[in-house]
């Protein structure tokens, strides 16, 4: 029986490639370049424990940032004080947070 391997995403994001971040910022839903796609695939394959997710605060209008527990039945943990008015706003912010966590570099590019 084949199971998921939480460590199967081995691609390393180059923290100097801020051009890819800008590409994502300007085209959240694609189409993406192949290099950006790899960055996104890596980010979306982070371990379930601690993975960023959004909690609906007010349907369609307000979302709170949280981290999954990675354990069945254990609720996500809210990231204190971080909410968004749209999914798009959240996606960009999560991208920046993941960039920092995965490359060790803060992503210093302006928001749109």
């Amino acid at each position: 029986m084949l199971l998921y391997d939480p460590d199967n995403a081995t691609y390393e994001i180059d923290g100097t490639r801020t051009d890819l971040a800008l590409e994502y910022r300007d085209q959240l839903r694609g189409p993406y370049s192949l290099e950006l796609q790899r960055v996104l695939d890596k980010m979306r394959s982070t371990p379930m424990k601690g993975r960023f997710a959004l909690i609906v605060v007010e349907p369609f209008r307000k979302f709170a940032l949280a981290r999954l527990s990675g354990e069945r039945g254990v609720p996500p943990e809210m990231v204190e004080g971080v909410t968004y008015a749209s999914i798009a706003e959240a996606e960009w912010d999560i991208f920046k947070r993941r960039w920092q966590e995965l490359t060790g570099r803060e992503l210093n590019v302006p928001d749109r």
Binding site: S45, R51, A53, I55
Partner: peptide, 19 residues
Amino acid sequence: KFDSHNTENLYEAPMVLSE
């Protein structure tokens, strides 16, 4: 969305969790 490692990759967006 909670249990399956590949869900975010499949849907290509962060998981949005309702009540």
